[in-house]
C-alpha cells in the first residue's frame, strides 16, 4: 500500500520555486503594476534613516549644544552657516531625506488607518502637496538666500556681511 502525499499548495517541490500557476493572480508578489516600489520604499526608510541620524544629531549639536546654544540663533547665525557650501548641502540633504522619510512614514500610516479609498486618496493628495511645497520652498531658500541683504542701497541690520 502506498500513501500519496500531496505537495504543498503554495510551492512546487520539484522545481524549488513557487508554482505561480497555483496562486491566484491577486496574491502574486511579482508582476503587479506597482513593481517593487514598496520594497524600494522599505529600503529607502532604512538607508535614509541611518544618514538622518548623523545629519540631525550634527544639526542639534551645532545649533543647540555648542557655544551659547539657542541664544546664538538669529538671522546672523543662519547667514553665517549658509555662507558656507558645506552647511548648505548638509541642510539640503537633511531637508530632502527627512521630508521623503517622513512623507513615506505618513503614507504608511494613511494606508493603515484610512479604510475608504476616497479618504486615502484625499489624505495622500494633501500629504504630497504639502511635501512638494516644503521641499521646493526649502531648497529655494537655501540656494537663493542672501547672507548680506541690502534694501534701497542700505545694508539691513543683522546680516552676515564680509568686511569691505
Amino acid at each position: 500500500m502506498t500513501a500519496t502525499i500531496q505537495p504543498p499548495r503554495s510551492g512546487n517541490p520539484s522545481s524549488g520555486k513557487p508554482s505561480s500557476g497555483r496562486i491566484a493572480p491577486k496574491y502574486r508578489r511579482s508582476g503587479g503594476s506597482k513593481g517593487n516600489f514598496e520594497m524600494l520604499a522599505w529600503l529607502f526608510m532604512r538607508l535614509s534613516g541611518v544618514v538622518l541620524v548623523v545629519l540631525i544629531f550634527g544639526h542639534l549639536t551645532v545649533n543647540l549644544l555648542v557655544g551659547e546654544g539657542i541664544h546664538a540663533i538669529d538671522f546672523g547665525f543662519v547667514a553665517g552657516k549658509w555662507a558656507d557650501p558645506f552647511w548648505q548641502f548638509w541642510d539640503l540633504a537633511m531637508l530632502w531625506l527627512a521630508m521623503l522619510h517622513g512623507t513615506n512614514g505618513v503614507r504608511t500610516i494613511i494606508n493603515d488607518y484610512a479604510e475608504k479609498d476616497a479618504t486615502r486618496l484625499w489624505l495622500k493628495i494633501v500629504l504630497y502637496a504639502a511635501t512638494t511645497v516644503i521641499i521646493v520652498l526649502g531648497t529655494l531658500v537655501i540656494f537663493t538666500f542672501n547672507p548680506c541683504p541690502v534694501a534701497n542701497g542700505v545694508q539691513l541690520p543683522g546680516g552676515f556681511c564680509p568686511a569691505p
Binding site: 538669529d74 538671522f75 531637508l95 527627512a98 517622513g102 504639502a130 516644503i134 537663493t144 541683504p149
Partner: peptide
C-alpha cells in the same frame, strides 16, 4: 519639520 522649514524660510523675507 513642516513648521521648522516654514519658520526658517523667514530668513528669505527679512532678517527682522
Amino acid at each position: 519639520l513642516l513648521v521648522h522649514v516654514l519658520d526658517t524660510s523667514l530668513v528669505r523675507v527679512s532678517p527682522e
